[in-house]
């Protein structure tokens, strides 16, 4: 089949879009989980993703670890960082006005960006080739083995997360805290601990995305988290912020829309389309695609 036919191009763009989208989905999960529990848009989340990529980088270059151990190490490291950020920056402001916490989040984001610029220099680093990238031809379509890996790891992590949230005691506590924090506390749930774990899980997922991106694109730098962070935020809103399946759906949709827009309309409209979607969603379905319209408690 001719690779230039419309159908083949469409299918190839779908593949590009889904692999990009699963990255957005992994980052969007962290946004959505944190928002779900403490109603905070954690703007430092994109930078935790960057730190995760750097931990993965140093794990493979300095410690000489393979892909999977490096991925795990990055997830653990970023999880601890996430807990630390929550403890140091957000917990003291638990009862402060929302705007104060939001501004603190932006401060943490800038701190991570420029702090790591100081530590690891602004020069982009290249990941060592820890995984081979072999193209897989299916008909006229080309899928890279790394794209398959990204999709596989993302799906696996999402399944694990769904299990944790729905079928474990910690997940039950998370859901309780997100549903009604005060009542959860009355029921004997250690709310601070649950929030801390939520940050850890969200940050670990972002770090996984960071390492996957590092391996796939082979280039990381201290400001790499800004754009994906924003796009993942849009994805979380698109799917319905606070809703975990919504973040997955939103992320994949974002990736596919971007790929199709730059593939069939124009590559310059790609980002405009991404943020245009945010505006449209906020206008017509403020709760997002999978979000439920819950009346504000008085």
């Amino acid at each position: 089949m001719d690779s230039s036919s419309f159908l083949m191009q469409f299918a190839q763009q779908l593949i590009n879009g889904v692999s990009l989208g699963s990255i957005y989905a992994l980052i969007a999960l962290g946004y959505t989980m944190v928002y779900g529990t403490i109603k905070l848009i954690n703007f430092a989340h994109g930078d935790v993703y960057m730190v995760g990529a750097y931990i993965g980088f140093f794990a493979t270059t300095v410690l000489g670890l393979g892909f999977l151990p490096a991925l795990l190490l990055a997830m653990v490291g970023a999880g601890i960082l996430g807990m630390f950020i929550e403890r140091a920056a957000y917990r003291p402001l638990r009862n402060a006005p929302k705007i104060a916490v939001l501004i603190t989040a932006i401060g943490v984001s800038l701190f991570l960006e420029y702090g790591s610029m100081l530590l690891v220099t602004p020069q982009p680093r290249t990941f060592p080739a820890v995984l081979s990238s072999t193209p897989i031809h299916i008909g006229g379509l080309i899928i890279n083995s790394q794209q398959v890996l990204i999709l596989g790891v993302s799906l696996f992590l999402m399944v694990v997360l769904t299990y944790v949230v729905n079928y474990t005691k910690l997940g039950k506590a998370m859901r309780a805290v997100s549903f009604d924090t005060d009542t959860a506390r009355l029921m004997g749930i250690d709310v601070d601990k649950v929030i801390s774990y939520t940050f850890a899980v969200g940050s670990a997922l972002a770090a996984a995305a960071g390492v996957l991106v590092g391996v796939y694109y082979n280039s990381i730098d201290p400001l790499m988290g800004i754009m994906p962070g924003l796009k993942a935020f849009v994805a979380a809103v698109l799917g319905g912020i606070g809703v975990i399946p919504g973040a997955m759906l939103g992320g994949v949709l974002m990736g596919v829309i971007e790929a199709l827009v730059s593939g069939f309309i124009s590559s310059t409209f790609r980002d405009a389309a991404a943020f245009g979607i945010l505006i449209i969603i906020l206008l017509f379905k403020p709760a997002g695609l999978l979000g439920k319209n819950i009346r504000e408690k008085v």
Partner: peptide, 21 residues
């Protein structure tokens, strides 16, 4: 086709470019 400095994913635009041979 166009991109912006700091972009990391170019596959969509490249796929489009490929079709024009």
């Amino acid at each position: 086709e166009a991109f912006l400095a700091k972009d990391t994913d170019f596959k969509s635009a490249l796929t489009k470019m490929k079709a024009s041979n």
